[in-house]
Amino acid sequence: MTEGNFVDYVKIYVASGNGGKGSVHLHREKYITKGGPDGGDGGRGGHVILRGNPNLWTLFHLKFKKHVRAGHGAHGSKSRSTGADGEDMYIDVPLGTVVRDTETNNILFEITDEGEERIIAQGGKGGLGNWHFKSSTNQTPRYAQPGLPLEEKHVTLELKVLADVGLVGFPNAGKSTLLSVITSAKPKIADYEFTTLKPNLGIVEYRDFQTFVMADIPGIIEGAAEGKGLGHYFLRHIERNSVLLFLIPADADDIKKQYDILLDELRRYNPEMLDKERLIAISKSDMLDDELKAELKEELDNELPIPYLFISSVAQQGIQPLKDALWKMLND
């Protein structure tokens, strides 16, 4: 999937259908000139329904479909015939889609399960026909209920990527390179910051044909939690990951400081992210000789509060131990 086709944020207008009118009808046939009221009820207006579809990965199919309208309910008719219900409109969305009211920005609900259906705009109820209103004192009512009006709203759909492992790091830390080596994904790779602007997903093949999903999240910068850069767009994709893999290059000025900044951005965006399992991978470690690596290891043993590994995506060093560590964290 090309980067331009990964759409994770759309605004759409939805409108349900009007309820059908109840019928005002008096029964008439041969030899029955003054039959009682027999006007039928109006049909229900169609709903607009969101449905979870595990085969979708993005909201691209909604990029050019900004208006969704359900069908109107049909009016009631004679012989107590109820009008047909309006056609429901289904909108398939990927799992992990958050639905917000565009005007208030309040979260309405989230779609997380396969086949889960949630009504986003309720169809109007059909009106009652005049036969409901007959009584001993009013045997020929000449009125019926109108159908209830449609419901319309503007909603924002946001996708939070569902993955087992999320790659977290500063721009140009080597996240896309690692994903391209450890999975079959083909993310864009270049030697400048913010090469990745959309999340990339890849399936990691482990031992005995077992797999897990890894997500390459665009680089985080200091201040991302306040929305600096495209912080909020990037950070929301990390919320769904079970394990966070912090990728910090071996040539960083201060590895512990970089980890603290990244962790602080996650904490300020959503403190619940700190409850996730975490692992640090020191990337580009093929640039270190044995002596430098030993010095750095001694320093990091005292500084880093969580486990860490030395890896090199280009030289294919430490890749299998990394897979083993991630698999153990996901399944313990």
Rank of each mutant, 00 (worst) to 15 (best):
K125N: 13
G127I: 13
L128A: 14
G129F: 12
G129L: 05
K134P: 08
P141G: 11
P141C: 12
R142M: 15
Y143K: 14
A144Q: 10
P146L: 14
L148T: 13
P149N: 10
P149Q: 12
L150W: 00
L157K: 05
L157C: 02
E158V: 05
L159M: 02
K160A: 11
K160N: 08
V161S: 05
V161I: 08
L162H: 12
L162K: 15
A163N: 02
D164P: 02
G166F: 02
G169S: 09
F170E: 03
F170D: 01
P171E: 10
N172F: 14
G174P: 03
L178E: 06
L178R: 05
S180L: 03
I182R: 08
T183F: 05
T183C: 00
A185E: 01
A185H: 00
A185W: 02
I189F: 08
I189S: 07
E193V: 15
F194Q: 12
T195R: 05
T195H: 03
T196K: 01
K198T: 09
K198S: 06
P199L: 02
L201H: 06
V204D: 02
E205R: 08
E205A: 09
E205Y: 01
Y206D: 10
F209T: 04
F209H: 11
T211E: 08
T211I: 05
A215H: 00
A215W: 00
D216F: 01
G223L: 10
A225P: 05
A225M: 11
G229M: 04
L230A: 13
G231C: 03
